[in-house]
């Protein structure tokens, strides 16, 4: 022991890292991405089929090719909404199912025991879910270009809203997953919060056509801003204020991030 060079080499040393455990963060993020890539049929192909079905149904049911929202043909109006819808649903599903399954199967300890701070946990999960949202959105956009004219009007708006919305739902999924104690609870969050907010946010119709009271209510829904701004990026048509949208989305993302961070820091429903 006493300074013998061979013995010194054989003893494994504690790994040192600075303010951020980059390897740990990368590993967590990489695991979250690998989780959905491994079952790509279910996580990428299935949403694609469902979204194309929605497109077919709305175009067939609404029928009338002359139907326009402002000066935008209905199917060009619909396409960005559907892409956004698929993105947010998948970003939500990634984090919520990851946390929920780990909690139910008991392997959440494998994520909580490594030297990851609450900030690193939040970041790893949130970015993993965001990646799935963006991947699904990108593939969806590629498929849609064959069916519907979706020219990009302002790429920066498309990118900002895609990132902000995926991040927002990824964080919501994280919070929902930590809060839920069984799948039935998580289904309640999806059915009573996420789906209504997403469906009633102007994905399928212009809120300009709503009665004044509901028009006002729709402006209180953060989902409205992400769909509206995203659609503006494609069609150049917006129902609400774009600046308000940028501010609302940024603030909501920061608040949700803080809440998720606090849940990990306190170990809410994660640690005894």
């Amino acid at each position: 022991m006493s300074g013998h060079p061979a013995a010194d080499r054989a003893i494994p040393q504690v790994r040192h890292f600075g303010a951020v455990n980059w390897i740990g963060l990368w590993t967590l993020y990489y695991r979250e991405v690998r989780r959905f890539v491994k079952v790509a049929t279910q996580t990428v192909l299935a949403p694609l089929v469902t979204t194309l079905l929605y497109l077919a149904i709305f175009v067939l049911a609404i029928g009338d090719p002359a139907h326009k929202i402002g000066d935008v043909p209905f199917r060009s109006f619909l396409a960005p909404g559907l892409i956004m819808m698929a993105m947010v649903q998948n970003a939500f599903a990634n984090t919520s199912s990851s946390i929920m399954i780990s909690k139910i199967q008991g392997n959440i300890v494998d994520t909580l025991m490594p030297p990851l701070s609450p900030g690193e946990l939040t970041c790893g999960f949130a970015l993993g879910g965001m990646t799935r949202g963006l991947a699904v959105g990108f593939i969806m956009w590629g498929a849609m270009t064959f069916l519907v004219p979706v020219a990009v009007h302002d790429f920066l708006f498309v990118l900002f809203h895609a990132v902000a919305a995926s991040l927002m739902l990824s964080l919501l999924g994280l919070i929902g997953g930590i809060w839920s104690e069984k799948f039935d609870h998580l289904a309640a969050v999806t059915n009573f919060i996420i789906t209504p907010f997403a469906f009633l946010s102007g994905t399928f119709y212009s809120i300009g056509g709503l009665p004044p009271f509901w028009h006002g209510v729709a402006h209180l829904n953060p989902f409205f801003y992400m769909i509206d701004g995203f659609r503006y990026g494609f069609t150049g048509h917006a129902d609400g204020s774009l600046t308000a949208g940028l501010i609302v989305l940024t603030i909501v993302d920061i608040l949700l991030w803080a809440l998720a961070y606090r849940m990990f820091a306190r170990g809410y429903r994660l640690k005894a």
Binding site: F58, A61, P196, F199, T203, F204, Y205
Partner: peptide, 9 residues
């Protein structure tokens, strides 16, 4: 929700 959305659209 489907009903509402279709009614609006």
């Amino acid at each position: 929700l489907f009903l509402i959305v279709f009614a609006m659209a």
